[in-house]
Amino acid sequence: MADAGVSVVIPCHTEKRKEQLARAVASAQAQRPAPAQVVVSVDHNDALLDYAASTLTGVTVVANEFDRGVSGNRNTGVAHTSTPIIALLDDDAYAHPGWLAGLSEPFEDPRVVGSGGAIVPVWESPRPSWFPDEFLWAVGGSYTGMPTVTAQVRNVWSASMAVRRDAFDAVAGFRVGFGKVGDRARPEDTDLCLRMSKATGGRWMYVPEARIDHPVPTARTTVRFFLGRCFNEGRGKVEMGRLNDGRESLDSERDYLRRTLPRAIGRGVSGALRGQGVANAGRAAAVLAGMCAAAAGGAMETVRPNRAGTPVPSGQPSTGTAVREPA
Rank of each mutant, 00 (worst) to 15 (best):
V156C: 14
S160F: 04
V122R: 14
D133N: 01
R127N: 09
N155S: 15
Q152Y: 03
P132N: 04
T144W: 07
W123Y: 09
T150Y: 00
S115R: 10
M146F: 00
G141A: 02
Y143K: 13
W157N: 00
G141E: 01
G116D: 01
S158R: 12
A159Y: 08
F135C: 14
A162M: 06
W130T: 14
V156D: 00
P121N: 12
M146T: 03
Y143H: 09
D133L: 05
S129P: 04
V139Q: 11
T144F: 05
P147Y: 08
I119D: 06
S160H: 04
E124F: 08
W157S: 04
T148Q: 10
R127F: 00
V149I: 02
W137I: 04
N155G: 13
D133I: 08
Y143P: 08
N155F: 08
G117W: 00
A118W: 02
M146A: 13
V120L: 14
V120Q: 13
S129F: 05
E134C: 00
W157Y: 05
V149T: 15
S115K: 02
G114N: 00
T144R: 14
Q152N: 03
G145Y: 03
V156S: 09
E124N: 11
Y143W: 06
S125G: 07
F135Q: 12
V139P: 10
G117P: 11
T144D: 04
A151I: 07
S125T: 10
G140M: 07
A138D: 08
F131L: 14
P132C: 03
P128V: 06
F131R: 07
P126D: 08
G116A: 07
V122D: 15
A118Y: 09
E134Q: 03
G141N: 00
E134T: 07
V139S: 05
G116N: 05
P121A: 15
S125M: 04
Y143Q: 15
N155C: 15
A138T: 05
W123H: 07
S115E: 03
G145D: 12
G145C: 05
P147E: 11
R127A: 11
G116Q: 03
V156L: 06
W137N: 10
V139N: 14
G145A: 07
S115T: 13
P147T: 15
P128Y: 04
S129R: 14
Q152F: 07
T148M: 10
W157P: 11
G141S: 06
A151Q: 09
V156W: 01
M161N: 08
A162E: 08
S142R: 11
V139I: 15
G114L: 01
V120F: 02
V122L: 05
T148C: 06
S129C: 08
G117I: 09
V149P: 03
V139T: 10
A118C: 10
T148N: 06
I119H: 04
A151L: 06
I119P: 03
S160V: 10
G145K: 13
G145M: 09
S129N: 02
M161S: 15
W157Q: 06
S115Q: 06
A151G: 13
W130H: 09
G117E: 02
T150V: 14
P126L: 01
